[in-house]
Each structure stands twice: as C-alpha cells, then as structure tokens.
Amino acid sequence: MTQATETKQKGIQLTEQALQHILALRNQQGKDLFLRVGVRQGGCSGMSYLMDFEEPSQVRDNDEIFDYDGFKIVCDPKSLLYLYGLVLDYSNAMIGGGFQFTNPNASQSCGCGKSFSV
C-alpha cells in the first residue's frame, strides 16, 4: 500500500465561495476536519456526488489529498477517476442555491445537479 499523497495540482477545484461556506460549516463542528468528496452508484443520472466531513485519522493510504491553505479535501482513487477537474461552487441564491458541481467528465447531469452519468 502506498502512503496518502498530497497533490499540489488540484484535481478538485474550489471556488472562494465554496471554500468559505465549507470552512463555516466545519467551524460549526468544532473540530479540524477534512472534506471527503466522492461518487457512488445511484441518483437519477446513474452516479451521485458525495460530500461529508471526515476525521483526519480516517484518511486511507491511497487517498488523494488536496490542500487549500491548510484546509484539506480527500478523495479515493476510484472516485477521482470520475471527478478529476471538478469545480465545486456555492451559491446562497434562494432558488437554485447550495453546492454546485461542474464536472468536465460528466456526459449528462440531472436537473438538480447532484447526479451525473459518464
């Protein structure tokens, strides 16, 4: 098994709005947590996005780690195949607000933007 790698070139991009919102959510948890981003089978387009906070001790040896000035995003290698180049944005608009995924690997996305197909 290889050791977790910290990548300088970010395969998962965050806009400033997304980073600020994620940091605010993490601060509410009262812990220094990482953000895990991934995919799973399901959703109306075949695959759905996953995002959740995770303890640093739960990072696996083969996870990719992306550092944003001390805040870390982790992604497993299988998910990264589908997410490489993803841009995660956040909008506080009343209609259509929340996290938005712009995935260059998606051939099709559902109307809500939370699932995709490749």
Rank of each mutant, 00 (worst) to 15 (best):
C75R: 02
Q3P: 01
N62D: 11
E54N: 05
I12T: 06
Q29F: 00
V118Y: 15
G43H: 09
K72S: 03
K72I: 00
P104S: 13
S79P: 04
C75H: 01
Q108H: 11
S45N: 12
F116P: 11
K10F: 07
G70Q: 13
A106D: 05
S45R: 12
P104G: 11
I65V: 14
D63L: 03
Q29D: 09
F99C: 08
G30Y: 02
M1R: 00
D61Y: 08
G111K: 14
Q20P: 01
Q108V: 10
Y49W: 04
D32Y: 00
S48T: 08
P56D: 04
L23Y: 01
T5E: 10
V87H: 13
M94I: 08
D67G: 07
R40M: 09
Y84H: 11
G42E: 10
Q58E: 11
E54D: 09
G43R: 07
F34M: 01
S117D: 15
A93S: 14
G70E: 12
Q3M: 06
F34Y: 10
S117A: 15
A106T: 07
T15D: 05
L35N: 02
D61V: 09
K78Q: 10
G42H: 08
G11S: 13
G96E: 12
T2Y: 09
M1F: 06
S57I: 06
K10A: 10
G42I: 07
T2P: 08
I65L: 02
D76H: 03
L19R: 14
C112T: 13
S115C: 15
I22F: 03
A93V: 11
N105T: 03
F71C: 07
M47K: 04
M94Y: 06
L35Q: 05
Q58T: 08
L86R: 01
D67L: 04
S57W: 02
D67H: 07
N27M: 07
N27P: 00
Y49M: 06
V118H: 15
G85K: 13
S115M: 15
G11E: 12
G42S: 11
D76Q: 06
G11M: 10
T5C: 09
Y49H: 04
V59R: 03
C44N: 14
L86I: 13
N105D: 02
Q28E: 11
D89K: 10
I22R: 00
F66I: 14
G11W: 06
K114D: 06
M51N: 06
A18V: 05
G111W: 12
L81V: 09
L19N: 09
K10W: 07
T2R: 12
N62P: 05
S109I: 15
S45F: 03
V39G: 00
K114S: 15
Q20D: 11
D67Q: 09
L86T: 05
I73W: 04
Y49P: 02
Q17C: 03
M47H: 06
C75Y: 00
L33D: 00
Q58S: 10
L50K: 02
K114G: 13
A18R: 14
D89Y: 09
P104L: 14
L50F: 03
L80V: 06
L23T: 07
F66W: 04
N103Y: 03
L23C: 09
L81P: 02
Y84W: 10
Q108R: 13
Q3H: 06
A4L: 05
S115Q: 14
F53D: 02
A24V: 08
M51Q: 11
T5N: 08
F66C: 07
L83D: 10
C110H: 05
F34R: 03
Y90H: 15
G85S: 14
